[in-house]
Design a protein around this nucleic acid. Structure first.
Length: 593
RNA sequence: GGUCCCGUAGCUCAGCCGGAUAGAGCAGCGGUUUCCUAAACCGAAGGUCACAGGUUCGAGUCCUGUCGGGACCGCCA
């Protein structure tokens, strides 16, 4: 049986061909084959696959690329999966596989079902992916939407590719903003006790979502907190408010289909743990030991007038040693940790928890933070782990091409929940993933619910629904067809699928494992969305061919065997569409009526 | 002033960590429904890959610079 990833299989055979030449003395031993790739050629007339092996190896081998290509090609011609080999251009080796290879790939896809494409490139490597991490001061804002969906899809993808994934939410529950939250909640608490609090003062959070917090506080504490000094009530109210805001955020995330398995509290980094110093103190000591801290004065910030700026001596981290533009303060002048300090401790903690790969999904407004974060990470992980910071650019929300103002006063959309309620989870998720994360994205609220070809979400989902409908119809006509897909695939006469469009579809299906692998390695879930669109497109095309050419329809009334074979092909399409959509967190509907 | 991102067809964007004649969708033009879902499909047209250098067998892709658009700059968060 063919291997699941046919491209990986052929790559292995190409490499073995080169090794065989080396063993025979035709090439130097120990050639570096890491840059050898096997890809589908842009131009289908070049065959099924092309390899750059000869061009990549030529220099080290001391041979002309085309000459080397001929030698490798000769070996490949004897391969049982290969029907023809040609050397072309500067030294490409173009391979055309025997149809049986593609039939096998299809059969494998259908047999493997939901695990088709699931890989082991991850080798169970522990990956921590931190995303959303919105401040626990209110419901999820639309600005968080993209990073939330992106992080979630990436996590799904990495898990599918064989990484051991932890989805984590970093709760910023220690900064000044949660004190503001507490003071805002305190007002709502007094309100709940019957007091007229009037307008919410400038600088506090005015949102209605704090009213339930006030009510809960009143129910729990009565008036006991009201007349106490702030220092007494603030920690209590803060804790309750944060808990309730996090509950709110979890609900918003659930509306997007997102569940984190780990919530990490920033506050916990500040707290001493039964006698032991806090994580932050520990981290500062660690940096100190490494000689990465010193007392010094920073130059004034450029390009921005800061009237209150004055030079002060501070404890600084040598971020410039790791590529940052300036050294960064670790402690503020009042001795408390600067913003980045808990973040350094946090990443160190993740490192100590054993994660080898860490991914931070941040918003565009944090782009300027990236260098210092990378610098800090390098210092703390000592080269034994990697950090990939994915910055999600802004989403411009439009309505019929016109920018939507996100002002709450105007009653326009501000929360994730409202967007999901208006256009649905599937549209939100797919559209957020139908773009590279580092490009600005336009999201037209009117267009994404349009059920037209303008809308890729529906296009792909429709493909899945169409496939399912073929099955419904086929089972009515041929009730005795095997219910079990593996059985169907094993007994079908797949060799009867010989139309070029059918073979093209098989090739596309066979690419899926490769797409997963590449997308996982590049941390780019959008590649799946584009692949699914292409797959759906080829399926729709084949479908429509049946209009003019009835012999190409999936269901052939008087030919049970042909129908069975075609059903396997449809099953392959449906399997991959469902699998890919699941990774994106989008429904794969059985019908679209 | 500085950092980061973007610049590819009229519009919105892909382009698989350097490969062959740069691809989709939309808009516009021309076609396809007695037929498994036409929410679909087919065809023609559309390009100085912002610009200029560099690296090499080979650059939309990597490096440097310039221009244009966006995000940002702190002992804030």
């Amino acid at each position: 049986m063919a291997t699941e990833n046919i491209f990986a299989e052929i790559l292995g055979r190409v490499r073995r061909a080169a090794e065989a030449l080396a063993a025979a003395g035709a090439l130097p031993a120990g050639l570096d084959q890491s840059r050898v790739t096997v890809e589908p050629p842009r131009d289908p007339s070049h065959g099924d696959m092309a390899t750059n092996a000869a061009m990549v190896l030529a220099k080290d081998a001391g041979k002309k690329p085309r000459e080397l290509a001929e030698a490798i090609a000769e070996t490949l011609r004897a391969d049982d999966l290969v029907s023809s080999v040609e050397v072309a251009g500067p030294g490409f080796i173009n391979l055309t596989l025997k149809p049986a290879a593609w039939l096998d790939a299809l059969r494998t896809a259908v047999r493997t079902a939901t695990r088709y494409g699931a890989g082991d490139v991850g080798h169970d490597t522990p990956v921590n992916i931190e995303y959303v991490s919105a401040n626990p001061t209110g419901p999820l804002h639309v600005g968080h939407c993209r990073g939330a969906v992106f992080g979630d899809a990436l996590a799904n993808l990495l898990a599918f590719a064989g990484f051991k994934v932890t989805r984590e939410y970093y709760i910023n529950d220690a900064g000044a903003q949660v004190d503001v939250l507490a003071r805002s909640a305190y007002l709502r608490y007094r309100e709940a006790l019957g007091e007229d609090i009037g307008e919410i003062p400038e600088g506090l959070y005015p949102g209605d979502y704090l009213k339930p917090v006030g009510a809960a506080l009143a129910a729990q504490h009565g008036s006991a907190l009201r007349d106490q000094p702030e220092a007494n009530w603030l920690p209590i109210i803060r804790a309750t408010a944060i808990d309730m805001m996090m509950a709110l955020i979890r609900e918003d995330l659930a509306a997007l289909g997102i569940v984190h398995e780990s919530f990490f509290s920033e506050r916990s980094l500040h707290e001493a743990r039964n006698g032991a110093p806090s994580k932050i103190a520990e981290t500062i000591a660690f940096l100190e030991r490494k000689g990465l801290l010193y007392r010094g004065t920073l130059p004034p910030p450029k390009g921005k007038v800061m009237e209150d700026w004055e030079p002060r001596e501070l404890l600084l981290f040598r971020a410039t040693e790791f590529g940052d533009d300036v050294d960064r303060p670790i402690l503020k002048s009042d001795g408390s940790p600067a913003y980045i300090t808990p973040d350094i401790a946090y990443h160190r903690d993740k490192f100590e928890r054993g994660f080898k790969i860490m991914i931070d999904v941040l918003g565009a407004d944090h782009a300027g933070y990236l260098k210092r974060l990378n610098a800090a990470f390098e210092a703390v992980s000592e080269g034994a782990a990697t950090l990939d910071v994915k910055v999600c650019q802004l989403v411009r929300f439009l309505r019929e091409g016109q920018p939507t103002r996100m002002s709450k006063r105007a009653g326009e959309i501000v929360t994730v929940r409202q967007v999901v309620d208006e256009v649905g989870r599937d549209a939100v998720r797919f559209m957020m993933l139908y773009r590279k994360n580092d490009a600005v994205l336009d999201f037209d609220l009117a267009k994404v619910i349009e059920q037209s070809r303008d809308n890729p979400v529906f296009y792909v989902q429709y493909g899945h629904a169409r496939g399912q409908s073929v099955f419904r119809n086929a089972r009515e006509i041929f009730p005795d067809l095997p219910q079990n897909n593996a059985e169907l695939a094993d007994n079908a006469e797949l060799h009867r699928l010989s139309d070029p469009n059918e073979l093209a579809l098989m090739r596309r299906i066979a690419m899926y494992p490769r797409v997963i692998e590449a997308a996982a390695q590049a941390h780019e879930p959008h590649r799946i969305a584009f692949y699914l669109y292409d797959l759906a497109s080829e399926f729709h095309a084949l479908w429509t061919l049946g209009n003019a050419a009835p012999h190409l329809r999936f269901i052939i009334q008087d030919d049970r065997q042909m129908t069975a074979a075609r059903l396997v092909l449809v099953k392959g399409v449906v399997t991959v569409l469902a699998s890919g959509l699941a990774l994106l967190g989008v429904q794969a509907p059985d019908e679209m009526r």
